[in-house]
């Protein structure tokens, strides 16, 4: 587990075989963990490289653990065409929005830097994304889709919801995770059930790590 978490040593998957997880949850999460082997189906070719680069900017991941396969998680969703049940009328449907958006990101990059988005360094990528977020770009490749809206209504919700639906993300932020049939009994401030993560207060990292290794 990475150094940028207050919950070192905690792995929500350690609870997989405890009363906190039921059969249906195990099946659902097991399936999600196979995303690493997913081959791109919708965002393919150049779009796949753009998407991967985009993911590293939106949710930068620490180098000292295997990365959550965020691009694959999104592509799986696009392949299944899982919508939200509503869309801003200015945006095209889910897949089309992403196809246009990834293509336009690449076009903006070539326009401004002479290189594709995936070939930019971090700083240039982030700079470009800030311009998209604030609608300060106008390449014809956007095909009428408002860039800022694409960023706020597709990029952020879709990627953040995919990343924070992954158990590794739950471990990082100290979320208790699945909880059926065993929910919780200690509800008030600064109390945790033995099956919840320990937050490392300054100076107590080693103890918290030991406790977290025992969380079941």
């Amino acid at each position: 587990m990475s150094a940028d978490t207050r919950y070192r040593g905690y792995d929500v998957l350690d609870k997989r075989d405890t009363p906190s997880w039921d059969a249906v949850t195990r099946a659902v999460i097991d399936e999600r963990l196979t995303a690493a082997d997913h081959l791109p189906q919708v965002a393919t070719g150049a779009a796949w490289r753009v998407l991967r680069a985009l993911c590293t900017c939106i949710v930068p991941q620490p180098a000292d653990r295997p990365a959550v396969p965020l691009a694959a998680l999104l592509d799986r969703r696009l392949a299944a065409n899982r919508g939200d049940g509503f869309r801003d009328a200015r945006l095209p449907p889910l897949r089309e929005a992403w196809r246009i958006g990834l293509d336009a990101l690449d076009a903006e990059s070539r326009h401004g830097h002479g290189r594709g988005f995936a070939d930019l360094d971090d700083e240039a990528r982030i700079d470009l994304l800030h311009r998209v977020q604030h609608g300060a770009c106008a390449d014809p490749a956007w095909r009428g889709m408002p860039p800022a809206l694409f960023f706020s209504h597709r990029v952020l919700p879709d990627l953040l919801s995919a990343y924070y639906a992954h158990p590794q993300a739950w471990s990082e932020i100290g979320f208790g995770g699945p909880a059926n049939p065993r929910g919780y009994v200690r509800m008030v401030a600064n109390r945790r059930d033995p099956w919840e993560p320990v937050e490392a207060r300054p100076g107590e990292e080693a103890r918290a790590y030991r406790e977290n290794r025992r969380v079941r």
Partner: peptide, 14 residues
């Protein structure tokens, strides 16, 4: 209760 005695670590309290 949900989970019954198998879920003792919760149900003994709750």
């Amino acid at each position: 209760r949900q989970g019954g005695w198998r879920n003792w670590s919760q149900n003994l309290f709750a």
